[in-house]
Design a protein around this nucleic acid. Structure first.
Lengths: 215, 215, 215, 215
DNA sequence: AATGAATGAGCTTTCATTCAT
DNA sequence: GATGAATGAAAGCTCATTCAT
């Protein structure tokens, strides 16, 4: 992380800094998600976090900083919460499907924050936007690597792995972005099942299909 | 369109109203797309449109009205510009693919505005948000009907047509939403080609594949 | 009337000027009375008068002009409508009481406009305020002269005719100013009767009382 | 006082709230009195009060709130300052006359604010206007009770105590409302004396007159 | 380290006034 | 003479940021 991406603080105790920032960012994510970035005031954030307005400015340089760390935290959650959910599994196809389920589940948990990421990233200054975009690319990498693994083992075959990866990502994000369209028609489980049928099944090889049917 | 969705104007000449609104909305779309809704001032809009600040309020009730008409205009463009581009074609598969190309092309033309639609719809009051969402559903219907046609003629077969429709839509939108990831790797044409391979080819029946290969 | 009190017009036909001004002032009085001077827009006045906004500025220099003429018209109505209602009567006491009834009746008719005169006179520039105040003094003169007549003929006797005159005026104005307090307790007739008992009876001489009782 | 009449503040310290509000209301009364409510800007008020514009909005919800509290303060002053000035006196007639003097004196002190009350009450929303009107009725009660006392003790006799009460009130208010007419002819003392002669003397009984002449 | 009252630039919106037709 | 679309200065109000305590 480049220096320019650092968020400055006027406080020295490292632990305190971490704790306070978490406290404030959590409050911010909640409010940004509901009301948007511009629609949320620093006063509201401090109140929600249970601290004074002035304190916020001892841990963040300005309001943009809060947004940046809020988005970063969302992306970090993706990156940290998904891998453990397929790490124990052995078979690549199982791992891929588990990852899809895990991604959708995290998106479900962070529904509002996911929408926030779509809405607000553009509000960041360029260098920070790039940082966030790179974090997303790292998350995408998860699917890409699992797909590569499946292809390498002759289980899948796809014309364009790069784009297929994005379809996995978009499919997961859509669960949050298009809540209004999906709620009532699908629950999370059936949505993930359908995802498997659209994004994995069609690209299975004979071997792949053989294993897939045993799941 | 319900009355409550109407945007009032203090001017009587119908033609003038239409012209002025177009002029102002065009300026607004440009600025909203770049700077976001909240980040754009009415002063900036009026300046960009080449009119006075006060004039804006003779054609729009408030700033929200401008956003609403801006989004409506984007959605209307989708709805009006896509169908003509496959209307002349006879074969369902050809029509479907042409529609995908058309949608991606419109998205390409309205790149910034498409991103705007994702970012700003949540800023609308409920009844207007619903209006915009319904407009999106009508646009989705385009793909859905074409897919149904293909299935009815035994050319395609998919486990979940509803979700597959959304994959078409998301794929098209992604061209705008993920510009930063795709530009440099794809041009519009190759993107559309790859889309055909991911979203159509895997779901072709034998008959469908036979025809597809002749395209 | 001093030149500085003149209201300028860009139109030459004298009759037209008078007609248009009346038309616009009538609309203004109606609106000013209901919404106050500052709460009324020139656009509303022109609409109420059934003319274009621009036309107003061909007959009035600015919005203040309209207020001035509106107030002037109210005061003029007082001045012109009251005297005829006691002119035919011969006895001074009868004339005085008839004048009180007439004043209260005009106030009743112009309730809102009377309140307007109290609220808005201070909004005028000094020279115009003075003009209006002089018009009010002329109206007060009506009571003063009638009282003087009664005193001269030995019908009344009061310690301070100047202030008693003002009590007559205030009593009449109060019917409009304190509507909220009086409506429900008095109707116009009983109010006037009570006025006679408070403002005339106590100041009658023996002769005066003798005649008064015959009324 | 109903909740709906409360004026909200974003500040918690009770003492500070009271002090700031007084500070701002005092400035507002001064300006409103001179320039009217609509003719006074919040910027002017804040400048006159020696605080920033934003601060005003931490102690008042909007400009209307300032007007309401300003008027309320004027009415409260009436209610609190008059009674102590006759409380020590024993004789009802003396008390009545002292009250008249006190009322006129308070009106004199609050000349501009009294005019403001006449001009601006109509600018208030209905529930607040009613609150102010009720406060005025409570003030009127002062005269009414004193008059009743005089009548009960056989000192006075009047045809309509309700209206006579209003004549006392109007007479007092007139000192402010008609400054332009009275200044030069009366000073406060002679005005009050004349008031006694017009509003008390004529309604004295024999007993009343006997005592009155000893004053 | 923490508070929260105070600031003031900048926003949306209104409306008296003008002027081309 | 009459129109009404157009103007833009100025208003009310918000809120990111500061700073004395």
């Amino acid at each position: 992380m480049a220096l320019s991406d650092d968020v400055e603080s006027h406080v020295s105790d490292k632990d305190l800094i971490a704790r306070r920032r978490r406290q404030i960012v959590n409050a911010a994510v909640k409010l940004f998600s509901k009301q948007g970035y511009a629609g949320t005031t620093v006063q509201q954030i401090s109140k929600q976090a249970g601290v004074s307005t002035g304190l916020v400015y001892q841990y963040f340089g300005d309001k943009d900083d809060i947004l940046f760390l809020a988005l970063k935290q969302v992306l970090d959650t993706y990156e940290h919460d998904i891998p453990p959910q397929y790490a124990d599994l052995d078979h690549p196809l199982e791992r891929l499907f588990a990852a899809l389920r895990a991604y959708c589940t995290v998106v479900h948990t962070l529904r509002d924050a996911t929408v926030l990421a779509y809405r607000a990233t553009k509000s960041l200054p360029l260098n920070r936007r790039i940082y966030i975009e790179n974090a997303e690319i790292r998350t995408n990498r998860i699917f890409r690597d699992l797909l590569d693994e499946c292809v390498a083992q002759g289980l899948m075959k796809a014309p364009d792995l790069e784009l297929l990866t994005y379809q996995f990502v978009l499919f997961s994000h859509a669960w949050a972005l298009k809540q209004w369209a999906f709620s009532g028609k699908y629950d999370l489980d059936s949505y993930v099942e359908a995802g498997g049928k659209l994004l994995i099944e069609p690209f299975l090889t004979g071997n792949g299909r053989a294993y897939w049917n045993t799941l």
